[in-house]
């Protein structure tokens, strides 16, 4: 098990390196730092001094990959690529355009992000599984049909609509909760109810339908026939046999996103004014703050890989057939 995790960690390194190269190419090779400076400072009327100053502030005033002016190994290390990459692996993301330390900002903003993403994830999973079970229990009946139609309709609605309609009805018309904002501690509850509810509702269509398919697939297996031949009731067949088998792909499939919950949700956070990582990212994109975007890309990949490892581990916990080697 330890050896397995170690191997996965080693395997993660080249992937993170790859991510780093991709972002580097995107951010420094597609456009030169000079272009970015000009873009950032306003395209017209920019002096070369202003550009140089902008670059120096951000440490972009070195060669990209190879510094001919240096000696020995410094030819490779005193470059933008080396500077910007090594920091990443140590989770030192440098400073944003507003001068704040990005790593610190990330630490502060993870909490609010998680406060929304985690309940959406957990409640959503429970709700979707429940709906799917109900549909499967009454399969091939009117109820099942209506459920499926409803799911298809719900998954055809834009996520933005759920948010806008929810904010309009619940906050603006009925004045039940504040339209947006965030507070620390227990006060956060009233700010979180609506985004969480909207997050759950907007996921039902696709989620419940997908789980229903999984359950139905499991229902057609031979062991279900064996269970019926034993004289078990439909409920026992469904809840004891089918559920247990179908939950394995459902749970392990869900595990991979758990670490990514830290990243928050771009849209929800920005609509509801929640100071999490999602809104941080969106602000950075709108302000064209490349350092922040790069940091978020790296963080996202890192969390994804953590998720992959967790998935494998969770398999061994819920599926007796799998032992990690």
């Amino acid at each position: 098990m330890i050896a397995y995790i170690l191997r996965r960690a080693l395997y993660a390194l080249p992937i993170l390196l790859g991510v780093n190269v991709i972002t580097f190419v995107l951010f420094f090779m597609v456009n030169t730092p000079d272009d970015m400076a000009r873009m950032n400072l306003g395209v017209k009327h920019v002096t070369q001094e202003a550009i140089d100053k902008w670059k120096a502030e951000r440490g972009y005033d070195k060669p990209l990959l190879y510094n001919a002016a240096r000696q020995g190994a410094r030819k490779l290390t005193d470059t933008i690529f080396f500077d910007k990459s090594v920091g990443m692996f140590a989770f030192d993301f440098g400073r944003a355009d507003d001068g704040r330390d990005i790593a610190r900002e990330i630490r502060h903003r993870m909490g609010p992000s998680l406060a929304i993403a985690l309940p959406v994830f957990a409640v959503g999973l429970a709700v979707n599984i429940t709906f799917a079970l109900v549909m499967v229990f009454f399969r091939a009946s009117y109820l099942d049909f209506v459920g499926v139609v409803l799911c298809v309709a719900m998954m055809s609605i834009s996520g933005l609509f759920y948010i806008i309609a929810g904010q309009y009805l619940v906050s603006k018309l009925w004045h039940l909760v504040p339209i947006s904002g965030f507070a620390d501690g227990l006060d956060a509850f009233k700010f979180l109810v609506l985004p969480v509810a909207i997050g759950v509702v907007s996921g039902i269509g696709a989620g419940a339908r997908w789980y229903r398919t999984l359950f139905l697939e499991e229902m057609s297996r031979d062991y279900v026939r064996t269970a019926r031949a034993k004289g078990l009731s439909e409920a026992a067949v469904l809840f004891r046999h089918v559920l247990q088998n179908a939950l394995i792909p459902i749970l392990t499939g869900a595990v991979v996103v758990i670490p990514l919950l830290f990243m928050g949700s771009l849209i929800t956070e920005s609509f509801f004014g929640i100071p999490g990582l999602g809104s941080y990212t969106i602000d950075a994109i709108n302000a064209q703050d490349f350092a922040v975007v790069r940091a978020m890309v790296f963080l996202g990949s890192f969390l994804y890989i953590v998720g992959l490892v967790l998935t494998d581990i969770s398999y061994t916990l819920v599926d007796p057939r799998i032992r990690l080697e």
């Binding site: 992937i15 991510v19 991709i22 873009m39 890309v297 996202g300």
Partner: peptide, 27 residues
Amino acid sequence: LYTTLNSIPGVLLIAAAVLMMQVWMES
């Protein structure tokens, strides 16, 4: 290749690429 690409959250990769494309088109 695809694990690497997959590991970058989709929206972020798109955002980064689009931002860069914007800069490139401006220049």
